[in-house]
């Protein structure tokens, strides 16, 4: 283990380490804590210059204000309407492509695979004008469907990489044995491979959920009105509206950040497994 385990060190080092941990964490999360505290301050605190200290009383009313006086509820609903179909669509497409590229040897396999990988790295701006134009022509501009279709396509690149590598690591003997038994290819996919892909599916669902929930660029390019915009784009609009009302901006930001945060804490293991794919040989 590197570095040397702290248990093997002197008592002073151990105590020092235990003290350093919370201090380091506090410094690391300082900006976030500041915003969290601000979101609970009554407006009068900010007006009277109490920026730093604790709130004079806990003003949960900021959160009520945010929900009652802004379309943030609608924004969040829109985010769900974009995120959940994208997760499902991407998983369906990429389990198929991952299976095709992971199991079979055929001409073009490696080229198609690296096309998915490379497409995944391109700057969004090179896609922006054509994708926006296409979405307008399909009559899907300023709809959540338009966003969903693009997200499914783009995320399929990353998910294909993930699924294919995952399927590659499965024992091939399993598939060979099934073939000898005369099981059809489609059934091999459905009854043998798909059940084994559960960990990959779990990891990708949390990752894609977070990526799509947090997407801001495409939200601003493909949607324009409060009835369709996801919460990231909505926050930008609200930020313009709430100039200098930091207690509201903070509360709004925290509300918008919540769903992926909950997702992360509930499914941490899968999340990290997905993110660190390939970090270990």
């Amino acid at each position: 283990m590197f570095p040397r385990p702290i248990e093997q060190r002197s008592r002073a080092a151990r105590v020092g380490y235990q003290l350093a941990l919370p201090v380091a964490l506090l410094l690391w999360l300082l900006p976030l804590l500041g915003v969290a505290v601000t979101s609970l301050k009554p407006a009068s605190d900010l007006a009277s210059g109490n920026y730093f200290g604790l709130p004079s009383h806990l003003a949960f009313s900021n959160y009520a204000d945010v929900f009652n006086n802004s379309p943030i509820g609608q924004y969040i609903w829109n985010s769900f309407k974009v995120t959940i179909p994208t997760v499902i669509g991407t998983l369906v497409l990429s389990s198929l492509t991952g299976f095709a590229l992971g199991i079979y040897r055929f001409r073009g396999n490696i080229v198609i695979f690296f096309m998915f990988v490379a497409g995944n790295f391109v700057p969004f701006q090179i896609l922006m004008v054509p994708v926006r134009d296409m979405t307008v022509n399909m009559g899907l501009y300023n709809t959540t469907t338009g966003l969903v279709l693009f997200h499914i396509a783009f995320q399929t690149g990353f998910c294909t990489l993930f699924m294919r590598n995952f399927i590659r690591a499965l024992p091939r003997a399993l598939i060979e044995a099934a073939r000898v038994e005369g099981v059809s290819e489609v059934r091999i996919f459905w009854y043998i491979v798909l059940p084994l892909m559960r960990p990959a599916i779990a990891a990708l669902s949390v990752l894609i959920f977070t990526f799509i929930w947090n997407d801001y660029f495409w939200a601003t390019v493909l949607t324009t009105s409060a009835s369709t915009q996801p919460v990231t784009a909505g926050l930008y609009a609200l930020n313009g509206l709430w100039i200098a009302q930091w207690q509201l901006v903070s509360a709004g930001a925290i509300v918008a950040a919540m769903p992926p945060v909950l997702m992360f804490f509930l499914m941490q293991r899968h999340f990290i497994a997905g993110l660190t794919l390939g970090a270990v040989k």
């Binding site: 998915f116 994708v131 396509a153 783009f154």
Partner: peptide, 12 residues
Amino acid sequence: GLIFFLVYVIIP
């Protein structure tokens, strides 16, 4: 998957 990816990523 390929159609989606070609239409929305590669061709653009």
